[in-house]
């Protein structure tokens, strides 16, 4: 076998080509955001920051951004709390129906989002709820929780169970053991879960599209803008900012994951 380290040349070449395919749209985003032209096409016309400046003046966008931030904060906090419960239960306890229960909670991971959205819409309308940002939060919690559980399960599973026993053995009760040992050790996982939930909620479109009332979230706002050619350069600029925000959040999540891995001495990540 040729070169275990680098791998056969064609495989490495393929890998790089694949990355180009993955990143193609992402690379275009800043290019068109800074392009001085009303249409999104080549050839490029020149450099401008006007699209970004225009964003500052767009009130509707600010409202949508504020809505999205509210929803994302609420959804990530609630889904992380629910994720802590479920991940802790499945990592630590053996109980009847554990696999089907956890499997059911993880179901939104493979369910088409439109089904989740439609089902929630139907039940909310039947119960007479009016659609609002809160109904969007309800839906987002549903799809963020599986991700929280995935991240937190590995945090709970990576923790040596005898650490908690050692704490009890040294005189601490159940609550203090959780606060003094369990929580500090899974804290990086919790931070990562919050960040991932926040990012997913911020980007989610379909459920927000179905469940939002009069207050659009950012993706719903973007969707409404995509129809107007004139608005597209501004949307590109907005996309750029969102990309940077996502990268910052993910960098932070990865940093906390690594710190957690170093602390618990494990090398495996949740990726």
């Amino acid at each position: 076998m040729s070169g275990r380290r680098g791998g056969p040349g064609w495989l490495r070449g393929y890998a790089i080509g694949y990355l180009v395919f993955l990143y193609a749209p992402v690379f275009l985003l800043p290019i068109f955001a800074f392009n001085d032209s009303a249409i999104i096409a080549f050839p490029l016309r020149g450099f401008t920051t006007a699209n970004f400046e225009q964003l500052w003046a767009t009130e509707a966008m600010h409202g949508a951004l504020a809505n999205s931030l509210k929803v994302a904060v609420a959804a990530s906090v609630i889904s992380t709390l629910l994720g802590i419960c479920a991940a802790r239960a499945s990592a630590r306890y053996e109980f009847p129906g554990r696999r089907p229960i956890i499997g059911f909670i993880m179901l939104p991971l493979v369910l088409p989002e439109i089904i989740v959205a439609v089902a929630l819409l139907v039940v909310l309308v039947q119960l007479g709820f009016s659609l609002s940002l809160w109904t969007v939060v309800l839906g987002h919690v549903l799809i963020c929780t599986p991700f929280s559980i995935a991240v937190l399960s590995s945090a709970f599973l990576n923790m040596d169970r005898s650490l908690e026993e050692a704490s009890q053995d040294l005189g601490e009760g159940r609550v203090m053991t959780f606060l003094r040992v369990t929580l500090p050790l899974v804290a990086p996982g919790i931070v990562a879960s919050l960040l991932i939930g926040f990012t997913i909620s911020l980007d989610e479109f379909i459920i927000a599209f179905f469940l939002t009332g009069t207050e659009p979230t950012l993706p719903v706002y973007i969707w409404s803008q995509l129809r107007f050619t004139a608005k597209l350069p501004g949307v590109m600029a907005l996309g750029c900012m969102l990309l940077l925000l996502s990268l910052a959040l993910l960098g932070a999540a990865e940093y906390f994951r690594r710190r957690s891995a170093r602390q618990t001495g494990s090398t495996g990540g949740y990726l």
């Binding site: 650490l163 040294l170 005189g171 001495g265």
Partner: peptide, 20 residues
Amino acid sequence: VPANLRPTNMVFQSYAIFPH
């Protein structure tokens, strides 16, 4: 009587040193 109230202490096989 739970473990935290017993006059026993344990050296664990994995040592269970708190990593934080």
